[in-house]
Design a protein around this nucleic acid. Structure first.
Lengths: 108, 108
DNA sequence: CAATTGTGCAACCAAATAATTGCATTATAT
DNA sequence: ATATAATGCAATTATTTGGTTGCACAATTG
C-alpha cells in the first residue's frame, strides 16, 4: 500500500470505483459507505485513504464524523488522458486518409 | 496474473498506458515496442498479453512478426464510466439547485 | 464521569503484480 | 539444411495489493 499513487491506480479497483460513484451522488462517512459493501469498515477506510492520497476525494470533519467529498477536478485527469489518446487515434486516421487520397490521385 | 481483467486494470500500469499511446499512433511488434522501454522484451510481451486479454489490443500475425493494434471500441468503456460519473455529479448540482430554488421561493 | 460511537492506524496475511531468466517454437535468410 | 530473428511460455522472485483483526483516540451521549 505504498508507492504508485495516481488517478488510474485509484480507479483500478472495483470497490473504489463504486465508492467514487456513491460519493458523486453525495458526501458520505466511512461508516455510511461501508454499509454498501461486504468488506469491513477498515477496508473501506483504506480505500478512502488511497483515494485521499491521490486527491480524488477529500475529507471534511464534522464533529466525530468525517464526510468524504469527490474532488471533481482530479477526475478530469482521466478525461485529459483519454482526449490525448483520441487525438493520437484521429491523427492515425488522418494519415490513413492521406494515403488513400494519394492513391486516389494517382488513379486520376 | 490471473483474476481482475478489465480496461481499468489495463490502464492502471504506466507502462501499459505508454504502450496504448504508442499503439494509438501505429500498430507495432513486441520488439518494436520494447525499444521504447527499459524493461525486457518479455516484460512488454506480458503487458501485451494482459492488454489482449481485456481486448484493449489485438494481435495480427504477419510472417514471424506480430503487430498489435488498438481496439478503440474497448477504450470507450472508460468514457462510458466517466459519463456515468459526470451524470451523477450533475444530478447532485441539480439537487442543490432545487434546494436553493426552494429557499428562494420561501423568501418571496 | 462513564459508556458509546466514529474513526484512524498498526500488524499481519493471502493473493496478485511486474519483472527476470531460460527455454521452445516458428518463420525468414544465407 | 543451418543460422538467425521474432515471439510466446514456464518458473522464479520481490513487491504491492486488498483484506482482516485488534487497538487507540477523540467526540458525543446519558
Amino acid at each position: 500500500m505504498e508507492s504508485r499513487r495516481d488517478v488510474f491506480q485509484a480507479i483500478a479497483d472495483p470497490t473504489r470505483r463504486a465508492i467514487i460513484m456513491l460519493l458523486a451522488v453525495s458526501a458520505m462517512t466511512p461508516n455510511g459507505l461501508a454499509e454498501h459493501f461486504n468488506s469491513s469498515r477498515q477496508a473501506v477506510s483504506k480505500h478512502l485513504q488511497i483515494l485521499t492520497e491521490c486527491e480524488v476525494v477529500s475529507p471534511e470533519s464534522r464533529g466525530r464524523e468525517i464526510f468524504y467529498h469527490i474532488n471533481t477536478q482530479k477526475m478530469t485527469e482521466i478525461e485529459k488522458w483519454l482526449e490525448q489518446f483520441k487525438l493520437l487515434m484521429s491523427r492515425k486516421f488522418d494519415q490513413l486518409d492521406n494515403v488513400l487520397n494519394k492513391l486516389q490521385n494517382r488513379k486520376q
